[in-house]
Design a binder for these strands. Sequence first.
DNA 1: CGCCGACTTGAGCAATCTCAATCATGGTGG
DNA 2: CCACCATGATTGAGATTGCTCAAGTCGGCG
Lengths: 255, 255
Amino acid sequence: MTIETGHAAQSYDAVPRKGRPARRAPQPAGSGELRKALLFADIDDGTLSRLSADARIESLQDGDTLFRQGAGVTDLSFVVSGYVKLTRIAPSGRQALIGIRSIGEMIGEAPTGGDEIHLVSAESVGATRVLKLPAPRFVRLLKESPALCAAVIRNSKESIARLVGEIETLKSQNADQRLAQFILSLCPPGEDRCRFRLPYDKRLIAARLGVKQETLSRAFAKLRAHGVRTETRNVQVESVAHLADQCDRLGPSQH
Amino acid sequence: MTIETGHAAQSYDAVPRKGRPARRAPQPAGSGELRKALLFADIDDGTLSRLSADARIESLQDGDTLFRQGAGVTDLSFVVSGYVKLTRIAPSGRQALIGIRSIGEMIGEAPTGGDEIHLVSAESVGATRVLKLPAPRFVRLLKESPALCAAVIRNSKESIARLVGEIETLKSQNADQRLAQFILSLCPPGEDRCRFRLPYDKRLIAARLGVKQETLSRAFAKLRAHGVRTETRNVQVESVAHLADQCDRLGPSQH
DNA sequence: CGCCGACTTGAGCAATCTCAATCATGGTGG
DNA sequence: CCACCATGATTGAGATTGCTCAAGTCGGCG
């Protein structure tokens, strides 16, 4: 599955959109902002304030490129608000969505000191603010702080768990099941009947699930029979438990 | 794609194979053995010998289970010889291959101290030997050795890179392209015309590429037209460069 | 020799993609 | 306030890809 944005896939950012104002100048960030990054949840104040010395907040508009696959890693970034999508371009030119990061999450991998390059490209989805820490300072503190080290390892393990889940999903579930699972993951816990808003547009959801937009639309249609109503971006689930039950039965027709 | 071993998918190890001798008793391992684990390539001798204190080597036969998804992590393991496949069972009961580890590679994730459970199940492929380090000792040393910490982080980043590549492949290439890429990855570097042996059977290769065995067989047949000859497990590639070229053209028919 | 497992091949089917037309919907300018 | 346009979403029809089921081949091993 590849992502097709409105413009040609290979050059989605070669031509600036008309009337787009320039990216806003970066703002300095205090250690209070850093604390909101999940990676730093357990880091002591001292280390954190040292980290924040030249941290800054940048505001991005929809479609702005944060960094490109293959470029050198200069910063460690986190989402402050909005979403950032991570994509990868295959040699064939096809673009595959690797993940979407939201508030508090790290964007890309933590630098560790070697000369490192980005594994993926990062692009904002809608108006987005990101926190950027220059890599060299982070690397220096990483070497001094076992707690920071432990946090990075924990974070990596979470990334791995997420990617493993993604592969499992891609290999063992069809489009309908993937959508059902995605919807279930959005349902607020505790309630059986619920109503919420999709976090981003269906084109992006389709890319996330690894299907074409049309296929996603048909999958939504099929889920209507199982108590999932949608009107544009609003979703209503009749019964979370029932949907979870049906999930397996959406699989390939057993003979 | 799911894995179908010779036995039923859900219970591939519930019934011991007839005539199988008991798993051989574990052998103690010296720090020389540890050095062969890629994770420890840059670790100092002192730390390594402390790590090796209660390390042991275990011999497994084809299909032996090393650990199961969801079970507690008691050891950190490495492949000494042979292969270990990592799989995951979806709620639906379908089993998806997550990865295959070979000599020197770590099996599963490094424990970090919390109460952790295995993300995947691990099962030997053919006769295999593994090195096992008890988790508690590893965790203790991890806290004391920044070098070990750095090694774990580096290792995690490699895992992530591998998983990201896997997702890209699954989302943006068809079966023929995935096979071509897989074959290219096996070709010894430097030679344009080459000949080698497949590392494991085609059933496992199919699972690794996320297709059925039959589909893999047809993909091999299609590659014959591009200079890939196979006779059972032996492969001969006419021209690596040519195959790499054709890789993109194996994609969906462009109109 | 005959069986068994791994592999191949064929035919039909199901899931998904592609292409194309249509239908909202929200924003913009007149 | 409304016509109009751009974008996203839906729907339909047909092509493709990969899966399922089934049969057949091949090679090794008891």
